[in-house]
Amino acid sequence: MELTVYLAGEIHNPWREELRTQAIKWNLPLTFTGPMEDHDRSDLIGEKILGKQPTTVLRDETASSINNLRTQILLSKSDVVIAYFGDQYKQWNSAMDAATAITLNKPVILIRDEKLHHALKELANKAQLVVETPEQALKALAYIFE
């Protein structure tokens, strides 16, 4: 058995790469997907596909539509979603991805520091598991294969 894991969450720290590296070290049969991690590529994809847009709002809208298409497809093909919330950035995309996963009946592991409990309480209540570190999330997935 192999699981496809969608990694939603903050893009401004190396948590995804650390999690992927640890999964390889533990020899876990996991395939990872997630949002576009190249921030410039994500922001400019609308213009790359649809051409130059007349305003920054339209540039953002076209990129958003294409990124949402990508996200919807990858989320729907995932077996489980790990959503990481750090304390430095507002992470509306992460919350949206986790909420979408929940509506698709995908299991969600929410990673957040305890100090974010109140801000994420409704989302945490819908998740299958809430942890504080990526390593704890990976340990929970490793348990599935025992």
Rank of each mutant, 00 (worst) to 15 (best):
K25L: 14
S78P: 01
A137H: 06
A124F: 03
N125G: 14
M36K: 05
V80P: 02
S42L: 02
V108H: 04
Y143A: 15
I82S: 05
R16T: 00
P29Q: 02
R59D: 01
V130P: 03
Y89V: 11
V81P: 00
I102Q: 04
A98L: 04
Q88C: 07
L58H: 07
Y143T: 15
L75Y: 01
S64C: 08
T21N: 09
T71S: 08
V57T: 13
P29K: 04
E37Y: 02
I45M: 01
L75E: 05
L116A: 09
G51P: 04
R16Q: 06
A8R: 00
G34H: 01
A99W: 11
A23R: 01
A140E: 14
R70H: 08
P134G: 15
G9N: 00
Y89Q: 12
D79A: 02
M36P: 07
I49E: 10
L58G: 03
P35L: 08
A142Q: 15
D87T: 15
E132T: 14
M36S: 13
M36Q: 15
L69H: 11
D79C: 03
I49V: 15
E132A: 11
G9M: 01
I66H: 00
L110H: 04
W92T: 13
N27S: 12
G34P: 01
S94N: 06
S78N: 02
T56W: 09
A95P: 03
Y143V: 12
L74I: 01
M36F: 02
E2L: 10
L120Y: 14
Y89A: 13
M1P: 09
A127V: 04
L104Y: 14
A98T: 04
R59E: 08
L74A: 13
Y84A: 05
L50G: 14
T21Y: 08
A99H: 06
A98F: 01
D97M: 05
E17I: 06
L44W: 05
S94A: 15
D113A: 10
P107E: 10
L44D: 10
D87K: 13
V57P: 00
Q53S: 14
K90S: 14
F145E: 09
M96S: 09
T55P: 03
T133R: 09
T55E: 09
R112I: 09
D79V: 03
E122M: 13
D43K: 10
L3F: 08
A137E: 05
I66G: 00
T31S: 11
N105G: 07
V130W: 01
Q91C: 05
P14C: 05
T21W: 07
Y143G: 13
K77S: 13
P134Q: 14
E114D: 09
I49T: 09
A101Q: 05
I49K: 08
D40S: 10
D60G: 11
K121N: 11
E114F: 07
Q53Y: 03
S94W: 01
L28Q: 03
D113L: 10
E17G: 12
A142P: 01
Q53E: 13
K106I: 05
A137V: 05
Q72H: 12
E2Q: 13
V81T: 07
L44Y: 08
A101D: 06
P29D: 08
L30V: 03
